[in-house]
Structures are given as C-alpha cells and as structure tokens.
Write a protein that binds this DNA or RNA. Structure first.
Lengths: 189, 189
DNA sequence: ACCTGAACACCGTTCAAGT
DNA sequence: ACCTGAACACCGTTCAAGT
C-alpha cells in the first residue's frame, strides 16, 4: 500500500539498469554522453529515464552516491592519521574519484557553489573533510596556515581535470607539487 | 587580379566583424557559445561564418593569433631574466591569457596533442618557451631537475581552468603553490 | 505507478542557389 | 568570390496517451 515501501518491481529494475548503463556510457564518453543512448542501452524509452532522474545531474548524483559514501568513510578515518600522509592520501583518493568520468571534475567544481545541485552536499562534505585534514596539518606545524579546505577541494578538481588531458603520472606529479607548496617545515629540514 | 592580394572588401569586413562579435560572445558565454549568435550579431548569415572559418576551432585560432604573438614576444624576453621571477611571470601571463574565455584552457590542453588543431602551433610554442625557462631555472639550481616544459604548460591550463570555478585570487594562490613545489634551494634557505 | 515515443527546441554544419 | 538561408542531423526535455 505504501508506495515508498513497495515500488513496482519493473520500476526498480529499470532504475538499476539505467544506472548501470549510465556508468558504462559516462566512462566511455564522459558525463556529457547522450542520454538517449543510455536509455536505449538500458532497453527503456527516453521518457522512462527522465521519469527516474529529472536531469543529467540527478542521474550523476544517484550514480555516485555509494562511491561518495565510501570516500567519506575513508576520509573520516584519515582524520586520525599523521597529517601530512593523511592529506596526501585523501587528495589522491578524491582525484582518482573525480577523474572517473570526463567532465566530472567540472561538475563537482560547480556543485560546490550551486545549492540546487544534487552534487552540492557531497562537494560540501569533501570540502569539510579537507578542512579537517588541513587544520590537523596546520596544528602540527606542517602546513601553511593560510591553506583552506576549499583550496584542497579546488586542487583535487584541478588534478582530476588535468588527468583528462595528460597522463595520470604527470597529473599526479603536479598535484604533488601543490601539496609540497602547501606544506612547510617538512620532516627532513 | 590576384585574389590573395585583392580580397573583396565586403569579405574582409565580414571577417573582421565576425571576429569582433565572436570575441564578445566568447567572453560572455565561453568558447562553446552558439555560432549562429555570432553570425547574427555580425549581421551575416551562418553560411558566411562557415565560409570564413571551417569550424569553431579555426575561428578561435584566428581570434587568438595576435594575442598569442604578443605572449610569445613577452615569453622570449623573459628568457634572459632571472629564472625564478621569469618563470612566475610567464605562468601568470599565460594563465591570464588561457582564462580569457570559459573553455579555452580545455581547448589549449587538447590542442597540444592534436596536430590538426589550429591551436596546435601556439600550444607547442608555449611549451617550448616554458621548457626554455625551466632549463634556465634548473641550470641556476632553483628548480627540480625533473620538471619539464610540458609540466608548466599543463600547470598553466590547470590554473586557467581553476579560475573558471573559483576566484582568480584563490586560483593564482594554488598556482603559486605548484611553482613553489617545482622550485627548490629558494633564496632564503 | 510507471512506461512509451512523438513532438518541440536548440544548435552545428552543409550546400544549392543567388549576386 | 562571396553571400544567403533552407535543410538535415543530433540531442535534451516535455507530455499526452497508454498499461
């Protein structure tokens, strides 16, 4: 009787198939991939896709939900680790995540400002975890005090975007330089 | 008699107007702005735009030609300046340039690989000047020896892209961290 | 409650017909 | 030699009609 408890089985199946095919298409062609292609591959009409997801961002938000959760759990755990290593690991994890699909880094970067975006909450949380890790690093005297969580969030998106244009190795090396620049009073000195 | 020496006056005027309106539209809406809007504002039919510029990249390439030349001259001059300041200044100039239109940084990043792109030659030249400045800095012992001109080119694009999503101040500060990370044996140590 | 697909809008690009 | 604009293709999004 309660529709939230008993969704129609075909509706659930279609939703799952749409998410699975969107993942395939977005990996191949980026987050701008044609949505009618997603629907076709999922074996449903385009209207069905829009029935489940009002627009591209909603589809993307649903697609990332589980992966975001895993990321946040990992980030929270890093909070109790040695600050420099924790910050480097966190940045690495999010860069990898934000580079999953071409164009994702740009959507995340925009999602931070746009409260209407389905990605907004996760962007805010990434920034909050970044801020936490930065505070740890500043408190430990290993990071410049002017660095913010928003800086780290911007850096992670820039790193992911750079991966779309150069090799992962080169992009990650550049990201490493940024973190080096954010840190001071390194161990060996 | 020679068509290259005597282009039709209306053709030349249309070309100029198209470039001027493309500049306006691209500044307002980014390099993906509707081309029929450019044509309409220039007072010509869409076919006229395509007659002068076979595609969006060709239009963009023509639009940037003079600015690129100015940039290269400035870059060459920096080549004989103190290496650290020269590198910082060069990166600042190109970041500013590549942030002129939304989406330009992405086209430049792609233009480096794609020989068919009208932007390829200028990307190659930016990389070459970057390489020159990096070699100067490495020779002077102020930059890590593994840094390349391609790294600096990627950094400049990433910096310009970041400016599309955060304030210029924040983006420039992040760019500064990358350069800090690329440099070592700083004066004060 | 969910699905279908025709319909509309928007825009890139081409090309036959003009001047 | 250059210009015009209709025509086609592609894709996002909506919605009336079905089940």
């Amino acid at each position: 009787m309660n529709p939230t408890r008993r969704p129609r089985a075909d509706g659930r199946r279609n939703r799952e198939r749409l998410l699975a095919e969107a993942d395939v298409m977005f990996r191949e062609r980026g987050v701008g991939a044609p949505l009618d292609g997603v629907a076709r591959r999922a074996g449903v009409a385009i209207g069905t896709l829009y029935g489940h997801f009002p627009d591209r961002r909603a589809l993307l938000g649903a697609l990332l939900r589980d992966r975001n959760e895993a990321l946040f759990i990992a980030g929270e755990e890093l909070t109790s680790q040695p600050p420099e290593a924790a910050l480097r690991r966190w940045v690495g994890l999010v860069v990898e995540h934000a580079a999953t699909y071409q164009g994702l880094a740009a959507m995340l970067a925009d999602g931070a400002d746009d409260e209407a975006s389905e990605l907004h909450a996760s962007c805010a949380r990434m920034t909050a975890i970044s801020e936490h890790l930065v505070i740890n690093a500043v408190s430990a005297g290993v990071a410049r005090p002017e660095v913010t969580g928003a800086d780290v969030f911007a850096l992670m998106n820039a790193g992911a975007w750079t991966r779309e244009h150069v090799s992962a190795e080169q992009a990650d090396r550049l990201v490493g330089y940024v973190i080096d620049g954010m840190l001071e009073a390194r161990p060996e000195s």
